[in-house]
């Protein structure tokens, strides 16, 4: 309430507001939830804390992680990108078609083509949303179908396999004992965190999600920022496409179906508001990890994948519910 502020305030600001348990929980609640989950799983399954298993979890989450980071940018601007799974599949197909073991295109060309394919489709999303004011839900729903169609057309419905060993390194290689996909995810995460935290661009992403009108009247080029977040999401779909093709040793036309749901779930579990303007990339990281650990834990416990979907869905709803009750109690 507005009353409380001016009653207690002194005219000169000094220091930070004191932290109580409630604000601690709201800042770190997701971290605590993650730790609790890990403790529970390490008790019920002796394999959970093994180094191999933990690396396996990280490898499994890295693709969703890359998609969820792009999704965080989009959702912070009050948008949504439903097309990430399809755009990823198309990028994977384009990259794989130049990464055959027999053909000699090297590693650079398939990487550039894969990232480029994602960037082009993401930019189309961005252009239509920013310039022609198509609602993001509608535009990216359309792109979800169009990109999938393009993938089938481009591949004639056939998977592309027998990829070069250079290319497979992107999904299966190790550097200093750490899987390459995990390193890619970590790199993207650090860049994204830095961008949102320290750059003017990051500041604008929050501002236009918080209040697009005020941002526009403050001289911010709202269209350009809006366009950029979809382009970022697109290029990250391209990266995820490279990673998934390399990890599974093939580009499949039906790859990544419903991946947008996990990416959105990670962002939402991480506390980013679908209404825009509020959220943190670190939350998304833990959202991704929580989903990964739940999948892994249920695998270890031998729970069927049918139940995994049920549990994951319930956790999304509970996470948002807790977030809501925190907001109304504040």
């Amino acid at each position: 309430m507005s009353q409380s502020s001016s009653l207690t305030s002194s005219p000169v600001p000094k220091g930070k507001p004191s932290h109580n348990l409630a604000s601690f929980m709201s800042d770190y609640g997701i971290v605590i939830a993650f730790i609790v989950l890990c403790v529970v799983l390490s008790v019920v399954s002796p394999y959970f804390l093994g180094v191999n298993n933990l690396l396996n979890v990280l490898r499994q989450v890295s693709i969703n992680g890359v998609l969820a980071i792009g999704m965080t940018f989009v959702i912070l601007t009050r948008g949504i990108d439903l097309s990430v799974g399809s755009v990823m599949a198309f990028s994977a197909m384009v990259a794989a078609s130049f990464a055959g073991a027999s053909a000699d295109y090297g590693l650079i060309l398939p990487i550039l083509l894969g990232l480029g394919a994602g960037l082009v489709l993401g930019s189309i999303n961005g252009l239509m949303v920013a310039r022609f004011a198509i609602p993001p839900f509608v535009m990216t729903l359309g792109m979800l179908s169009m990109a999938r169609g393009l993938t089938y057309i481009y591949s004639d419905g056939m998977p592309i396999s027998s990829l070069s060993s250079h290319f497979l390194w992107l999904g299966q290689g190790m550097v200093a004992g750490i899987p390459v996909p995990v390193l890619l995810f970590a790199t993207v995460f650090i860049i994204a965190w830095f961008t949102l935290r320290y750059t003017a661009f990051g500041r604008y992403v929050y501002a236009i999600g918080g209040n697009p009108t005020a941002s526009r009247l403050s001289g911010i080029n709202v269209r350009r920022i809006t366009f950029s977040v979809y382009a970022i999401s697109g290029i990250l779909c391209g990266l995820a496409g490279l990673m998934i093709a390399a990890r599974t040793s093939a580009a499949l036309p039906q790859a990544g179906v419903a991946y947008e749901l996990d990416a959105i779930a990670a962002v939402v579990i991480g506390g980013t508001s679908l209404a825009g303007g509020k959220g943190r990339i670190i939350g998304t990281l833990f959202g991704v990890l929580i989903i990964g650990v739940i999948n892994n834990g249920l695998d270890l416990l031998g729970v069927s994948s049918f139940y995994q979907q049920l549990v994951k869905g319930a956790i999304i709803v509970i996470a948002v519910m807790l977030d809501r009750s925190r907001l109304t109690n504040a």
């Binding site: 502020s5 001016s6 305030s9 002194s10 005219p11 930070k16 507001p17």
Partner: peptide
């Protein structure tokens, strides 16, 4: 910070969300 003094803005810190402020502030 200078605006806090110059315009007599009542706030606990410059990191306070504006939603928590009164209309005048």
């Amino acid at each position: 910070r200078p605006f806090i003094d110059r315009l007599h803005i009542k706030a606990s810190s410059v990191d306070m969300p504006v939603r928590q402020m009164s209309g005048g502030n």
